[in-house]
Amino acid sequence: MSKKEKSIMKLATAFALTFGIVPSAYAMHIMEGYLPVGYCIAWGAVCVPFLIAGFFSIQKTLRKNRKAITVLAMSGAFVFVLSSLKIPSVTGSCSHMTGTGLGAILFGPSAVSILGIIVLIFQAVLLAHGGLTTLGANTFSMAIAGPFVSFGIYRLCKALKVNKMAGVFLAATLGDLFTYCVTSFQLALAYPSEIGGVGASAVKFLGVFAPTQLPLAVIEGILTTVIVMTLETYALPELKAIGFTREVK
């Protein structure tokens, strides 16, 4: 990071801390208008440093090797596709996947925050799915928290020398699940239950999201594994350039 980039990062972090921490003193996509104003601003502010870090991270990757843009575009498109597919689940309701695991594994978690927010804006503006007021909260759960877990698990599996594809599968699956855990927690923070407070409320929201999301998370895991396998075959030079694949063919 250059000096200029660093100072912008510092400013953004300070901004997030000021706005992000104050409201928390009281204390999937969340639908438009369903979060109180304070929470909307707080979650939005928390996202800002991640988004800026993501912007720099993408800039750096592309400056280093221009060709990686194809794989980056594909990871973005993957988020587009997966988050548009509503899939029936065992609980009798539908939900959709996040698709952010792939980008997180290939480019690192902060880069995905940019890809994710593009999709979220598209859905919020055109589809009334999610929303502009809840954009911050949704970006945090889908484009920041989920990818960070994916990335962490992928790295952990790599360190433990787990089979690479198994690692990719686990990373994408758990990242997807974690997104919905964060969503539940965000809703619970805004709507604590009268008896039991935030904890009890979080359990209730998890009860709605988790069983529905579990099979979908598995699907996301499988699809991510398939696309990584395919990319390894056809886009080996790019994957090597971004440091994903090291071994010789």
């Binding site: 689940s89 309701s93 539908c94 939900s95």
Partner: peptide, 11 residues
Amino acid sequence: AEFGGSDDAGS
């Protein structure tokens, strides 16, 4: 089953 969105279940 209705297969409504889980977002609606959330609300």
